[in-house]
Design a protein around this nucleic acid. Structure first.
Lengths: 233, 233
DNA sequence: TGTACATCAGTGAACGCGCGTTCACTGATGTAC
DNA sequence: TGTACATCAGTGAACGCGCGTTCACTGATGTAC
């Protein structure tokens, strides 16, 4: 599932992030020590995801890397995927900022273009920090895994809506054709940002500088939202 | 590796697609019957990739699905990934058309906009046909797997260069700022096309129509290449 | 056209490792009084 | 502050399935004459 228009809730337990109340396999709330171990397992999962392939990520390896035993892993997670889902949820929580970013910006004139640049930067650095997890989220979502799709939605929904609102407002000003559904360009922008951010290294390898990508995207973002030609130079 | 500027060769055996001369495990050229079996295995791999998760795709299952034995599988492929690489290469060969598409189009005025729409359609339908394989290619490339990265490059390289050329020509006409490196917007466009095409269903699920995505992307493509506001309505 | 031989193709069956998973136990930490 | 007890946390060791992988063999197909 990609960007998601107009949704208020995500269908989870009311107001509670899944990660907020972790339980051990027998249903008990882990104490200080337990939570630390659990966190260590999550950290190792993240690290191994960043350095190796998802297909080959095994419970045994994570446990060994964390200096503990497989049995311990199963006290906190049902399987590898569940651990990755938790990582994804932690990440999604960190991504709440994007919506605010868009809403508190002005999208006209010079400062509008600056806002576009700032948004692009923000997205790029966020993706940089979360490459490995995002990669799996995308794959699993595509493969029809509902848990990951849900997380992905939470992450992109807000940004998508915020962009659509901004475009809708500009539409009222007549710069954007009235028959455009703001959700569509918003979704396209989100996709562009997400995908380019995800493949930044790929571009660099082929000689395209991040600075140029950033400019190209900022120009497209600015133009798509404001309907105005971006400032030159 | 993402879109790739300016590369002529891919470093393979000269002029030979890997798939053109398949060998059995012992190095012999399979005959009619052998090739048919091999193809059946590939087809099943593709089918299972389309319906299940990559992480859980096993040699045994593919063989069973193809009505043959694991031993047979190993006569044609070293492992699951190798089979998927072959699928990816077949796909990349089919994707050669994009570059021509761009080069034979005019990018000015009404017909320029029509060209943008046609390109968008072409990319969308290609991705539709190759969803499952492309998904794995993206993941594996991201994870640093050179074989997949190579295929991905072959697929996108040509389109990327063609777009960069088109932008470069328009730059000469003054519509696009001279300090823009054409490879950057070209790469961004490729990314956008690829990612939106890959997540079409996601958008539809959330109420954004493919027709609107198509229009949004065509507008961005047209604007990025020609530097001109797209025609309204 | 038939027979003999060579190569191609496919597989049953087995081997064994890797890994997921569990359980009964030990040690650590917290709490009551 | 010390002792006894309860719960928390962690794990060694084992079990066993699933799967990758191989080998020796059978059957199919092709070719020579």
């Amino acid at each position: 599932m990609d960007p998601a228009p107009e949704r208020t809730d995500d269908g989870d337990a009311p107001g509670a992030d899944v990660d907020e109340d972790p339980r051990a396999a027998d249903g008990r709330r882990p104490g200080r020590r337990g939570l630390a171990t659990r966190q260590r397992l999550l950290d190792c999962t993240a690290a191994m995801l960043a350095s190796g392939s998802y297909r080959e990520l095994k419970v045994v390896d994570i446990a060994r890397e964390a200096g503990t035993s497989p049995a311990t892993f199963y006290q906190y997670f049902a399987d590898v995927e569940s651990a990755v889902v938790v990582l994804a949820e932690e990440m999604a929580a960190r991504g709440k900022r994007f919506g605010d970013h868009v809403r508190t910006s002005t999208w006209r004139g010079r400062s509008g273009y600056a806002a576009a640049e700032a948004l692009v930067d923000d997205v790029i650095s966020f993706w940089e920090e979360n490459r490995a997890v995002l990669r799996v989220v995308d794959l699993a979502t595509d493969e029809g895994d509902g848990r990951f799709a849900n997380v992905r939605t939470r992450l992109l929904n807000d940004l998508n809506n915020a962009l659509a609102e901004a475009i809708g407002e500009m539409q009222a000003g007549g710069r954007i054709p009235a028959d455009v559904d703001p959700q569509a360009p918003a979704g396209v922008l989100v996709s562009m940002l997400v995908h380019v951010a995800a493949h930044r290294y790929g571009f660099e390898f082929w000689g395209v500088r991040t600075a140029d990508l950033r400019t190209s995207m900022a120009r497209i973002v600015y133009w798509s939202i404001s309907g105005q030609r971006p400032p030159t130079g």
